[in-house]
């Protein structure tokens, strides 16, 4: 089943074509990593897919009413904004806003899943960056949508929090959700994503399993780098090494 379907999606911002003709499907049990260099259009692609910025082509989500869309996808922007000193449990409960209910079940489940029980009465603005990221992810989980989209969810997190975050996405996929993430850490993407989508120069260069997308040729073309890679019993390891000549 497809949770997101993009057909020839193109975005032009202030006269500059950001990307064009992107066709992409995301279904259940997938953690799809969107990778590409700075300015490749990863954020714009996700925002256009959500219908937050104008685009040409088709997105299955952009066609929904805002209310329907809010029940189909949860979105975590890169900026982890928390404007007011609300309690962690109230922040997580914002995930129920699109449903118009005050269901405690999904909120409690999200708090438990993110290990926030001890922080629930704390003011979210007083938390550390890692704790805030966990609370915001819990908010998205409480929204209980088939698809979760997150822009750079691991940025600014320490390695333990990065791994924990990726494991949450893996668990979501195992439950039958779909996940689309933009990631800068290729190693993390290779380890934890079931599929990678490489975006560069405004085009979709590759879409497939990590070992295919992270080939020497595509890394050189997409990122202009060479990387060390190895297969370990725990899965693939990628370490960017040099800029490609």
């Amino acid at each position: 089943m497809s949770f997101l379907s993009l057909q020839k999606l193109s975005v032009t911002l202030r006269g500059r074509e950001v990307f064009s003709d992107i066709t992409l499907e995301i279904g259940a049990h997938e953690v799809v990593g969107l990778i590409g260099p700075n300015g490749a259009g990863k954020t714009s692609l996700m925002r256009a897919a959500l219908g937050l910025i104008p685009s040409r082509g088709e997105s299955s989500l952009a066609g929904l009413t805002p209310q329907q869309r809010a029940k189909a996808v949860a979105w975590m922007p890169q900026a982890r904004e928390i404007a007011w000193p609300v309690k962690v449990e109230d922040l997580v409960a914002l995930g129920r806003l699109p449903h118009g209910d005050h269901a405690q079940g999904p909120v409690e489940a999200a708090i438990a899943k993110m290990g926030l029980e001890g922080l629930r009465k704390r003011r979210s603005t007083n938390l550390s960056g890692g704790e805030q990221a966990r609370a915001l992810l819990a908010r998205a989980l409480a929204q209980e949508t088939p698809l979760l989209m997150a822009d750079e969810p691991t940025a600014g997190l320490d390695p333990a929090h990065q791994i924990a975050t990726m494991e949450v996405f893996g668990a979501l996929a195992a439950e039958g959700h779909g996940v689309l993430l933009s990631l800068h850490d290729i190693g993390l993407a290779a380890r934890h994503c079931t599929r990678l989508v490489l975006l560069a120069e405004g085009r979709l260069l590759a879409d497939g399993p990590p070992e295919e997308v992270l080939s020497d040729e595509l890394l050189a073309r997409g990122f202009g780098i060479t990387a060390y890679h190895a297969q370990t019993p725990d899965g693939p390891v990628f370490q960017p090494m040099h800029r490609a000549r």
Binding site: R47, L52, A70, W75, P77, L94, Q143
Partner: peptide, 18 residues
């Protein structure tokens, strides 16, 4: 409702149907 959602910023609020 909209102001509550805006606690998380404009993009997140818009994605929540505001």
């Amino acid at each position: 409702r909209g102001l509550d959602a805006l606690t998380l910023g404009e993009d997140a609020a818009a994605s929540m149907g505001i």
